[in-house]
Simulated assay, not measured.
Amino acid sequence: MATVHVLVLALALAALVLLPCAVALIICAEGPIKRIRRRLHRRRERRTLQRLDRTLGTHAVQIETLDVQQQPTIQQIAADLRRLDRQRLGVATQSRVWYAAVQLAYDDRLRLASRCLGVDEHLAQLDGVDLEIERVRVEGELEAAGLTLRRQDH
């Protein structure tokens, strides 16, 4: 019976000594925990941006730097427009950065298609609602010229 009392007394003393240490550890660990969370968040953002670069890097084209030999075919441009249109309605809605990047790539491809088909466009000069209206107008002109921008699933 005496050993049980000694054991209980030892556990009580250990709890009495270790409890303040545990509280201090929890309070002091708040800073490192925040740093770890911040680091993980930055790493996640960096991976997202790298994925965006990989996705758009192969398709982003500066219109001014294209010459006749490098210019993609109208079929490639149409396929890019359909893919980017799907992304504008899907993946791009999850992030402002993705949405802006996809919109820029989509507008670049609209300008390329307009140049190939002789459609007048003013996408580079506009912004906001005017840009949205011009985008819809150019899409309509391109479709009237025979370019299929959206696939209809039957």
Rank of each mutant, 00 (worst) to 15 (best):
V61C: 00
D85F: 14
L110N: 02
Q75D: 09
Q71F: 15
L52I: 14
A15D: 09
T148S: 13
L16D: 00
R42T: 12
L131H: 04
T48G: 06
H122E: 07
L84N: 09
W98R: 10
V8R: 02
I26M: 13
R51E: 12
T65R: 02
A60F: 13
T148M: 07
R42H: 10
I27E: 11
P72M: 06
R109M: 09
Q76K: 12
A144C: 01
V136N: 04
T148F: 02
L84T: 07
L147M: 14
L81D: 04
L19D: 04
A15C: 12
R47D: 10
D127V: 07
A92F: 08
V61R: 05
L110Y: 07
V102S: 01
V97Q: 08
R88G: 06
V6N: 05
S95R: 12
T93P: 00
C28N: 04
G146Y: 02
D85T: 13
A144G: 08
R37W: 04
M1K: 14
P72Y: 05
R135W: 05
A29S: 13
D127Y: 12
H59S: 15
L112S: 07
T73R: 00
I63A: 08
L9I: 02
V91S: 06
A12H: 00
P20M: 08
L89T: 13
D53Q: 08
R43Y: 13
D107R: 11
I74S: 08
G118W: 07
L11C: 14
C21A: 13
E121R: 01
R47T: 11
L49H: 08
T58N: 03
R42Y: 11
H122N: 05
Q50P: 01
D120H: 15
Q125M: 02
R39W: 15
E143F: 02
A22L: 15
L56Q: 01
V136D: 02
V8Y: 01
R51W: 12
A100Y: 09
L131A: 09
A10C: 10
L11F: 13
E143L: 09
E132R: 12
H122M: 05
A105Y: 03
H154F: 13
G128M: 02
V68W: 04
I63P: 00
R39G: 14
R150E: 14
E141M: 15
